[in-house]
Design a protein around this nucleic acid. Sequence first.
RNA 1: GGUCCCUUCGUCUAUCGGUUAGGACACCAGAUUUUCAUUCUGGGAAGAGGGGUUCGACUCCCCUAGGGACUGCCA
Length: 483
Amino acid sequence: MLRARPGPMALSPGFPDPMTVVTRFAPSPTGSLHIGGARTALFNQLYARHTGGKFLLRIEDTDRERSTEANVQIILDGLSWLGVTPDAEPVFQFARADRHREAVAAMLANGGAYRDFTPPAEQDAERERARAEGRVVRSAWRDRDPSEAPPGAPHVVRLKAPLDGETVVDDLIKGQVTFQNRELDDLVVLRTDGSPTYNLAVVADDHDMGVTHVIRGDDHLNNAARQSLIYQALGWEVPAFAHLPLIHGPDGAKLSKRHGAQAVGEFADLGYLPEALRNYLARLGWGHGDDEIFSDSQAEAWFDVKDVVKAPARLDWAKLNHINQQYIREADNDRLTELTLAVHQGRGVQVSADRLASLPAVVALVKEGAQTTLQLADLTLFALKSRPLALDSKTQAQLGEETRERLARLRDRLTASKWEVPALEVEIRAFAEAEGIGIGKFGPALRGVLSGGAPAPDLASTLVSLGREEALGRIDDALSQVQ
RNA sequence: GGUCCCUUCGUCUAUCGGUUAGGACACCAGAUUUUCAUUCUGGGAAGAGGGGUUCGACUCCCCUAGGGACUGCCA
């Protein structure tokens, strides 16, 4: 349960500057920050920045049963990690319940709403009847005199929606969407317990926050029509709407647990860089010509909601991986080292101070081939192992007598070499030539001895990144091992 | 059931009445090669179906099919 928290009640009144765009992201803390929600937030921020406007955050915590403080924190952390940051302190919807009740009172006063005293069980029955008859819910109390009800009787307040005519939602993405008013029901705006409902709260908050552009998921398109009616009942200007198509799983079905990560936090755990995820998410449902990899400022300069694609997009892990790889290449080595170390630590890898010192150079060496920081950890593991290394079976199998003798000779040769990549490369080639064999005859064995079977870069680079003492020591360990 | 939305390569997209329908990821083949990866070259791959409108439709309109959302005193 979420406890009431003091929210900023004093909000910017109306539209201070009609030219200024105000967007908002309005998640409900009944769960974590979903990847689809993250993209919605991103688009809101991009549009606000594109237009020089403001991007706001509102936590819709009016479901007291399911909203939790922990989820609020997860959403805040997720957005912060992703780099989507509102331009003002978040607004908590529940804290504004009084204001919402005020709005309902105004609707009641001007005839835009009515009290419905129908008992809940009867309302359920009416809903089923309405559905069976293919019509929308209307209460008998719509036209009854409230004084007919016993004083103080429990009731809800419903919107008195128009019975005919049509409501047009002028959507920036979908175009003009027309709804027949007879299809729009008298939705409840105030519950029996006096708490406001979602559609009412959204309208009141968006109005009070000065939101000019409501950019949200496709699943709200139908709500947009009903909300338009509430705006009208309140005599408020209807904001511009833009309904984003949803993100589906790789198989086209609704995104769910079985598709892997769903929550933004999981993407961090899977080794993705926030800037890479931003870039990928921006390309999901939106594009700018042939541009695939672009900076935040480019995205801000190019992005416009009207260019958002109408059809739902699927999450494509392979492409996300590719984009992440591009960003890892460009990322700062110290930062990558830190991220990589965190992965190793999470895996319980024990790292000595000596080995740790070699990590930055190794990260720089292997980062081109890594798609995620998880892979970065895989590719750097060889350098962090402590002597004596446990050799994998593949390497052990290669260490026959002939190969061991060969490695011993190579070791002597390397000992005399300068410990630099070009020099070692020359030595290795010269050695192969002297032995009259190809590098393939001993290269894999040497690599295995040096890495214990973990992936490692080319031999000379591996030797250098381990350092002379460590590298020679690892060879000695392997050669002295009893077969 | 009702209302609404959507439909270009496997995937993300470009096109905005006239293109050999472009790019990216993935995939396949080849080159390089001391593992994995990287890199380079090449290749296959699309307008859901049917009607219109038009000199000309991926592009505009209609129908069908398929997918999705909503239909709560949840948000």
